[in-house]
């Protein structure tokens, strides 16, 4: 970057005084970032301040931490947070599956493009479509269970979304099905860009499939895997609303079996007319999400300085 600037200046800068050049250097990238920055700050910064203010008020009157106390002690909110935490357990499954599919696709010579599309397609489907389709498919007397019964597998024909002990697991499986394509493509792209010499050398030395990928491929994929894992952790904490809303008709049911924090916030704000409690819950979600987002940016900055430049 620096060398590009120094080589360009002699062509465009002879008419600028030394002081003007100094000023330009001092401002750095900020003049370019500022317009968009102001826009973002206005749209989101204002809303964030408003959100924070609301979380400390009730019908316009200051109530201190009351809203937070009410939210934190709400068994439904506790359940919602617990479910978000449980959903985090899908992240290692997602990473493992994405890694497996990526390596299999990498090793596949014939029909790679087809398999690539097949794995990536669910990620492209709109969540409402996925929700409606799975909602129908997974009914107790839906297509899946009818198929299982026809095959004599009655004991596997569960009430996938209607049983409170089963619903969150089913929801997790659907999220995994939809999200794994993103990770597969991400990891595969990195795999393809890796230098092949090491793999070839290992093969010549007699390394098998597992040893080759475990000892050579995996260490080189670490930044991408970390990036994907953090991204998915953010999804599980704060982006699963659509799945739950569409598949449970906005109820988070049966009972509170699939209630998550986002749905709690939505229902508080728009269904229960309690915007202050929604604001307090949203602030708490912001704080918890922040941990992941800081991690996300750290990985991204590492990727930018390392992986992407390679």
């Amino acid at each position: 970057m620096t060398s590009a600037v120094t080589t360009a200046y002699p062509v465009t800068a002879p008419e600028l005084s030394g002081a003007a050049r100094g000023r330009r250097r001092n401002f750095g990238p900020w003049p370019w970032i500022l317009p968009a920055g102001i826009g973002i700050l206005f749209v989101f910064g204002y809303s964030l301040v408003d959100l924070l203010q609301q979380s400390f008020k009730y019908r316009g009157a200051w109530v201190g931490l009351d809203n937070f106390r009410l939210v934190v002690t709400d068994p439904l909110f506790q359940t919602a947070i617990f479910h978000n935490a449980l959903l985090l357990f899908t992240v290692p499954i997602l990473v493992a599956l994405a890694l497996l599919f990526a390596i299999l696709l990498f090793e596949t010579r014939r029909g790679m493009r087809f398999y690539q599309s097949a794995v990536f397609l669910p990620y492209l489907l709109p969540i409402p479509v996925v929700g409606v389709v799975f909602g129908q498919l997974l009914q107790l007397n839906g297509a899946l269970n009818s198929g299982l019964r026809a095959l004599g597998l009655q004991s596997f024909a569960l009430d996938w979304l209607g049983d409170p002990n089963q619903a969150l697991v089913t929801m997790s499986a659907i999220i995994i099905w939809k999200e794994v394509g993103f990770g597969t493509i991400l990891i595969l792209a990195r795999l393809i860009s890796l230098p092949t010499e090491l793999l070839e050398a290992a093969q010549i030395d007699g390394a098998g499939f597992f040893k080759k990928h475990l000892k050579i491929t995996l260490p080189q994929l670490r930044p991408v895997i970390l990036f994907y894992a953090i991204n998915e952790a953010i999804v599980m904490v704060s982006w699963v609303f659509n799945y739950v809303y569409v598949m449970t008709n906005g109820q988070g049911g049966p009972g509170d079996a699939t209630m998550v924090s986002e749905l709690y916030i939505y229902r508080s704000a728009f269904q229960n007319q309690a915007p202050e409690l929604a604001a307090a819950a949203a602030v708490l979600l912001l704080i918890s999400t922040l941990f992941f987002i800081v991690g996300f940016f750290k990985v991204q900055s590492r990727s930018q300085s390392g992986v992407l430049d390679e």
């Binding site: 910064g45 982006w239 915007p275 996300f296």
Partner: peptide
């Protein structure tokens, strides 16, 4: 700072200004 902006996007997408 970037994290704050991103978290705001997530939250504000799930909660509009009310009252």
């Amino acid at each position: 700072a970037g994290a704050m902006i991103c978290a705001s996007v997530i939250l504000i997408s799930s909660l509009g200004s009310t009252g």
